[in-house]
Amino acid sequence: MLGIDTECIVGVMSVKHALLGLLESQSRHGYELKHSYDEYFTQDKPLNYGQVYSTLARLLRGGLVEESGVEAGAGPDRKRYAITEAGVTDLANWLTKPEEPAVYLQNTMYVKVVLALLSGREATAVLDAQRTTHLRAMRELTQRKNEGDLTDALICDHALFHLDADLRWLELTASRLDELAERVRAS
């Protein structure tokens, strides 16, 4: 398992919109949707059927998908789902709307560094510990990327660049610790 939870990488993506996107190209059964979702978007933790059907139920209620047929078989009837015009519009809006830039660990790390300085602890140790943890996660992601396919590479790259940004911040903060210590202790 990766040190970083890859579910979080995918977790920022809306399951609702992912299912809409998969339905846009063709109508599908619930189980087909689940398998396509798992194939494209998750590696470690497949989407459970309950989430697929509860999401489809919400999409049906919202008029974003519709039932496009039922196939009778030995087991339960298998419904096919198709995206509606409203669903296509909703999906297009989601696809073109930029995500809110998220603030990652800086706030927590800043509080830790300031508290370490205030309490006379070694703030560098706080930063070093975080760097070690980040780099371990980056090593695991890099290994996974190198052993995986293009989807793995793209998902891992995204996580790697975010971790890299955190590490740059840690490095710069380490270089500014003396200045920060003066300010913290003066106030």
């Binding site: 070093d128 760097r131 980040h134 780099l135 980056m138 090593r139 992601l141 890099t142 790697l160 660049f161 971790l163 890299d164 590490l167 740059r168 380490a174």
Partner: peptide
Amino acid sequence: ESRVAAYADREVVVR
């Protein structure tokens, strides 16, 4: 660069 260091088995930091 941390993305380069991630190809290593471990890292040491010089400061």
